[in-house]
């Protein structure tokens, strides 16, 4: 592993502003006034180029469209014109888009509570004094975080195949019919399982770290009074780590709305996953398969706005409930 610092000394003296000011302003206070901007310059330049500018460009594109005159042949036949809100109107009226939103909503309702519920239970059990094999379990449950979503989709994808899956062997032995996970509505659970598998461990570590920060005096008194471990966990520990749980929920929701890698990887194995299965897959198809950048831009702006509204709405909701007494 390379440590980031090994190359750091070699780059000393690189911040251009800090050195430039040395020649212009001899006073140390002047140099010190510009120094923070020198340190921030690379971050700000990259931020503008790869975040701010692209966002502005996407919004601009979402209000534009291509006008075809005549037969659409020749160089002058296609011109870009203002489209007003028509891209948004057609995106919001597109049944394929609405279907993909519905799918992702259901997918999120399955994934987020399951993943965070499991993460919370595992974190509490790791923290409980009567649990054993905690180091092994913690490492094993965290391990999927090291597996990229594409690779985990690959692994589970094969495990879902009738010829490979161990579950089919079990069901066969019992003489039962096994429903294929790659058909119809069940494919939703097939994808959800991959997300839960990949995300539980990381969220568990987040919650577990918060649990470990609780001073033990807070619950030792309750334990002396004879409170059970379950009571200590639900009445003392969970309320204290609630902010961690809320934050992990918000970020899980954001990630859920952007699901792309798992269904895209599983597509070759399943007919039930269309090219517009999730909103992001539809954006990809519109932009790069159909070449319709304008409606793809409008759709992606809608997804971004929905993400903001949902995450801030959720935060406001839980804050007024959970922290109302603090005001």
């Amino acid at each position: 592993m390379t440590s980031p610092t090994t190359t750091a000394p070699a780059r000393a003296g690189r911040p251009a502003v800090a050195t430039a000011t040395r020649t212009t302003g001899p006073s140390t206070s002047g140099r010190r006034r510009l120094a923070p901007w020198g340190f921030l310059a690379p971050a700000i330049v990259l931020f503008v180029l790869f975040l701010a500018l692209p966002i502005a460009y996407a919004v601009y594109l979402s209000f534009r469209t291509e006008k075809v005159s005549g037969l659409g042949l020749g160089a002058g036949a296609r011109t870009e014109v203002w489209a007003g809100l028509s891209n948004y109107a057609s995106a919001l009226g597109d049944p394929e888009f609405l279907a993909s939103v519905g799918r992702v909503a259901l997918y999120g309702l399955i994934v987020v509570p399951t993943m965070l519920g499991l993460a919370l239970v595992f974190a509490l059990l790791l923290d409980a004094r009567r649990s054993r094999a905690t180091t092994f379990s913690r490492t094993a449950i965290f391990l999927p975080y090291a597996v990229p979503a594409v690779i985990s989709s690959l692994l589970w994808g094969f495990l879902y195949l009738p010829g490979v899956s161990p579950f089919y062997d079990v069901f066969d032995a019992l003489g039962w019919d096994v429903p294929s996970l790659f058909e119809g509505d069940l494919v939703m659970f097939a994808v959800a399982n991959i997300a839960v598998w990949g995300g539980t461990g990381f969220n568990m570590i987040v919650i577990y770290t918060a649990l470990k920060a609780i001073p033990s005096e807070l619950y030792e008194a309750a334990e002396l009074d004879g409170a059970s471990q379950v009571a200590v966990a639900t009445r003392i520990k969970v309320p204290i780590v609630l902010p961690s749980i809320i934050m992990t929920s918000v970020f899980s929701m954001i990630a859920t709305l952007q699901v792309f890698a798992e269904p895209t990887t599983l597509r070759p194995l399943s007919n039930a996953i269309s090219t517009t299965w999730t909103p992001l897959m539809k954006v990809y198809r519109d932009a790069f398969t159909r070449g319709d950048l304008y409606s793809a831009a409008a759709t992606s702006v809608i997804i971004a706005v929905a993400t903001f509204v949902l995450s801030f709405g959720f935060l406001r909701l839980v804050q007024s409930r959970a922290f109302g007494q603090e005001k």
Binding site: L49, I55, A58, I254, A297, S300, I303, A304, T307, F308
Partner: peptide, 16 residues
């Protein structure tokens, strides 16, 4: 910037 979904950036980043 943390909250900006990657997809909003992907298309314009590609074009730029």
């Amino acid at each position: 910037g943390v909250l900006v979904p990657a997809i909003v950036l992907a298309i314009p980043q590609y074009l730029l």
